[in-house]
């Protein structure tokens, strides 16, 4: 196997850890260079969950305080945690892949003796701590305004911590695989739009999955979307048993392995088509 792959020789883990820490640090510095822009962007992103929250709160109030057993306070908790999970969910998009392939910017990454997926993972992981710090005051304001009901156990908090990083890995691998399609199609935007539509419906981003018909919930359970969005929120906000919490982490692990394998397989064939235009 190419030494550029995601596994390998002795000392590999230690040097990989060194790379992740160093890359994460540079990303934190880059993000802080544009802290005001990042903050405004973060505030702009709030429009989507607030619209959902207001709609569901209004419906719940009209139906006597709840919709299918979910109270206004639980909706508030769902969508406030949603804002954090959504930020954890932001990864290098297929649009980004499309740009780097079409403009030839992938060349610099290909010359380095490390897989470009590591660079993407480390860069966006480094971006997260800054965003989380920025998110805290926003969450505090939302908390005061919408009065959520949130009383997680220690186990739920622990599972949530791992689940948001699991979600990050699942979505990174999914998006990278989609992005690599650019090497066959030149443009991947249309495919990405279809992906986003399906993800909106089956991930719990638009509607909590508990409000969907049973068959839709069943379909969502066997696809990766739920595990990269709804599960982390449900782990903290919902009332899952220990078995369901650990089973959810196991499902995330399954999707991480499956999608990483898929991404590496697609990469193996895709990179041969790279024409390094311009750079």
């Amino acid at each position: 196997m190419s030494a550029q792959g995601l596994s390998g020789e002795a000392g590999y883990v230690r040097s990989l850890f060194d790379f992740y820490v160093t890359r994460g640090r540079t990303q934190i510095q880059s993000t802080l260079q544009y802290r005001v822009a990042t903050y405004f962007w973060l505030i702009g992103m709030l429009a989507e969950p607030i619209v959902y929250l207001v709609v569901w709160t209004t419906i719940a109030e009209q139906q006597g305080g709840s919709v299918q057993g979910i109270t206004t306070g639980e909706f508030a908790a769902y969508y406030i945690v949603w804002t954090l999970v959504r930020n954890m969910n932001i990864v290098f998009t297929p649009y980004g892949w499309e740009g780097r392939i079409r403009e030839g910017e992938l060349s610099a990454a290909l010359l380095r003796p490390i897989h470009p997926l590591h660079d993407d993972l480390a860069a966006f992981a480094g971006w997260k701590p800054v965003v989380i710090v920025f998110w805290l005051p926003i969450a505090a304001v939302l908390w005061l305004v919408f009065d959520p009901v949130l009383d997680p156990t220690l186990l739920e908090v622990g599972v949530f911590f791992f689940a948001i990083w699991g979600a990050y890995l699942i979505r990174t691998m999914f998006m990278a695989t989609l992005g690599m399609i650019t090497l066959w199609t030149t443009r991947v935007s249309a495919i990405f739009e279809i992906f986003i539509a399906i993800e909106l419906l089956l991930s719990g981003r638009l509607v909590p999955l508990r409000l969907m018909p049973d068959w839709a919930e069943d379909v969502a359970s066997v696809l990766p979307f739920k595990w990269s969005f709804f599960f982390p929120i449900d782990a903290l906000v919902g009332d899952l048993s220990t078995g369901e919490l650990l089973g959810g982490l196991a499902m995330q692990a399954f999707w991480i392995v499956a999608l990483t394998g898929l991404a590496l397989l697609v990469w193996r064939f895709a990179v041969r088509r790279y024409s390094a235009v311009g750079n």
């Binding site: 000392g11 040097s15 060194d18 790379f19 820490v21 160093t22 890359r23 540079t26 510095q29 880059s30 260079q33 544009y34 380095r112 003796p113 490390i114």
Partner: peptide, 19 residues
């Protein structure tokens, strides 16, 4: 090189990449 950072930071990143 990292566009927004001093080159020294990119050099440090290269140290980690090339072990």
């Amino acid at each position: 090189l990292q566009w927004d950072l001093p080159a020294l930071d990119s050099f440090e990143l290269n140290r980690a990449i090339y072990r």
